[in-house]
Design a protein around this nucleic acid. Structure first.
Ligand code: MN
Ligand code: MN
Ligand code: MN
Ligand code: MN
Lengths: 216, 216
DNA sequence: TAAAAAATTTAGACAAACCTAAATATTTTA
DNA sequence: TAAAATATTTAGGTTTGTCTAAATTTTTTA
């Protein structure tokens, strides 16, 4: 249907579109670890297939058809991540690369049955929502810990950075999905934050606080 | 590590080697649905990598390194087929194409955990042996039903033809893996065979009998 | 055992997805 | 608002894996 490269480009456009109106060639090149000229080539191809809206020099957006494909790939990615963690006991920092391959397994029947097998999970191991078979999903309203005040708190429901290093760090601190936290202090010097958890206190840098998401 | 095409060529050489000393260019072209000239190109590349022994015009065999890769791909293929049937409730005629894609998921750690998750199955849904993580497996000693005499019998343990059409036919006749059969008659006219099963009798053509494997 | 047939390889192309270097367009800055 | 800086596209290649057509080798046949 679509090539592996096409699927990866569509997925990248989708992810980058969440933070901006339209997506630039250089943004894509950075995310896809490729060169801007290669991106331009692919954009022409995807525009030809009417999967993106592309005006030279003006960036791109997904068409409805392109978005549908992108969301389906993300659905597969997140369901496989869930499978790897829940059924095969991988840790949340170990599954992304495997899912990058598995998301391209083409059968939708397969992914729908996998979804059912796992009980139709709503969120992946990193707290990201899993689209249903019609592409529908809702994100809970998340804020970075860095955006809340002393004495406020909430439940950890996601991360902005998905790198193994960051996830391993959070794991070690016990800052995992579902944990309740409360900000008890903000250090003036470097704005690092002191968090009260159920049975311990941890101090995290501003950088970490920016990448840790909670619901109020 | 190796490309998808390289993996598919190695796997094909392995399968074709089971029925002959060495494998010819045309045999591979037929199995891989490609042209003999394309095969020659790839054989040069695989020989360069020392995964096959190749003398122009003389056919090929796998080196130890090539065989190891081939068996690992077959292990993945059969474990995924087992998963699809046992966990996702697909039928035995539905899983081959999906497994053709899934066998190329690279992680060995993933496949080893999948193996464990399923309880280290020894045979796939078609009765083919699943190599363990060291590549070891044993085939039981199989004979086509067509090779046995009247009043002899055994247990269905495999198929020679893996096409959906054949598998669906067997399913409909109740001729599935594990079933006990006994040959009660051979029709002289076309050498078709009458089989006695636990609670019914079926008649199969010589063609079917040739492709249905049993242990005595 | 020499011609015919079949199998295989070589030669020359092509599409996909990349790349570098150069050209061009847009944005920023002074 | 013109120059400088940045972003993007174009031009021209490369690699992988495929193809057709032609050449060559091996096998079969008469
Ligand atoms: Mn991921
Ligand atoms: Mn995830
Ligand atoms: Mn199969
Ligand atoms: Mn099988």
């Amino acid at each position: 249907m679509n090539t592996l490269a096409e699927e990866n480009y569509l997925k990248s456009i989708y992810h980058l579109s969440l933070n901006a109106e339209s997506v630039s060639t250089n943004q894509m090149a950075a995310l896809l670890n490729t060169k801007a000229s290669s991106v331009t080539d692919m954009l022409k191809k995807l525009a030809e297939k009417e999967l993106i809206n592309y005006t030279p020099y003006q960036g791109v957006t997904l068409t409805a058809a392109g978005e549908k494909i992108a969301i389906n790939i993300i659905r597969k990615h997140r369901l496989w991540e869930f499978f790897l963690v829940e059924k095969l006991n991988f840790k949340w920092d170990e599954v992304h690369e495997m899912a990058e391959e598995m998301e391209h397994i083409s059968s939708n029947e397969l992914i729908d049955r996998l979804d059912k097998f796992m009980g139709f999970p709503k969120y992946d191991p990193h707290g990201d929502p899993i689209p249903d078979c019609d592409g529908k999903f809702k994100t809970h309203d998340l804020k970075p810990v860095s955006a809340i005040d002393v004495n406020a708190g909430g439940v950890i429901c996601g991360v902005r950075d998905h790198s193994p290093a960051f996830l391993q760090y959070l794991e070690k601190q016990g800052l995992t999905i579902g944990k309740q936290i409360c900000v008890t202090d903000i250090i003036e010097f470097d704005r690092s934050m002191v968090l009260q958890m159920e049975n311990k206190t941890v101090q995290i840098s501003r950088e970490v606080a920016n990448n840790l998401l909670i619901t109020l």
